[in-house]
Simulated scan of single mutants.
Amino acid sequence: MTHHKPNRAVEGEPDHGHSRGMPRRPDEDELEQRTVRDREEVGLPTGGPEDPEAEYRSAQDEIDREVDAGEIATGDAAKKDRDPFPPTRYER
């Protein structure tokens, strides 16, 4: 009675695509298919990411719109009213 698996059972068979460890270069198509499948399983959109430049422009446009509408403060008013020196506890 032996409790060890034979080497072939542990290592897999190279004829069937199993090898020892990660390949040096993963198959990009297979990785893409797995990513899409995994995203579908958890309910995320399966399309590729949007163009980063387009995302940046849309976020910047939204911030500019909110500033123009007065929905967010720009900090300019606080700087004008603020004393350039910190408050002091010492009285003269």
Results as ranks from 00 to 15, higher is better:
T2D: 12
H3W: 13
H4C: 11
K5N: 10
P6L: 13
N7G: 11
E11K: 08
G12Y: 02
E13K: 09
E13Y: 12
E13S: 14
E13R: 12
P14I: 12
P14C: 12
H16K: 14
S19G: 13
S19D: 11
S19N: 11
R20A: 15
R20T: 15
M22A: 15
M22S: 14
M22R: 13
P23R: 00
R24M: 00
R25G: 01
R25Y: 01
P26L: 09
P26F: 04
D27K: 01
D29F: 10
E30L: 13
L31F: 06
E32S: 07
E32Y: 02
Q33R: 15
R34P: 01
T35Q: 11
T35C: 12
R37M: 12
R37C: 09
R39D: 03
R39A: 03
R39S: 00
E41K: 10
V42Q: 04
V42P: 00
G43S: 10
G43R: 11
G43Q: 09
P45K: 07
P45A: 10
G48A: 11
P49W: 06
E50T: 05
E50V: 05
P52G: 05
E53P: 01
E53K: 04
E53V: 11
A54N: 03
Y56G: 03
Y56N: 04
Y56T: 08
S58N: 10
A59M: 08
Q60D: 08
D61R: 05
D64T: 07
R65Y: 04
R65A: 11
V67S: 05
A69S: 04
G70W: 03
G70D: 02
E71L: 10
A78V: 08
K80H: 09
D81S: 15
D81Y: 10
R82I: 13
R82Q: 14
D83F: 03
P86V: 09
P87F: 01
P87H: 02
P87S: 08
T88I: 08
T88K: 06
Y90F: 14
E91D: 08
E91Q: 07
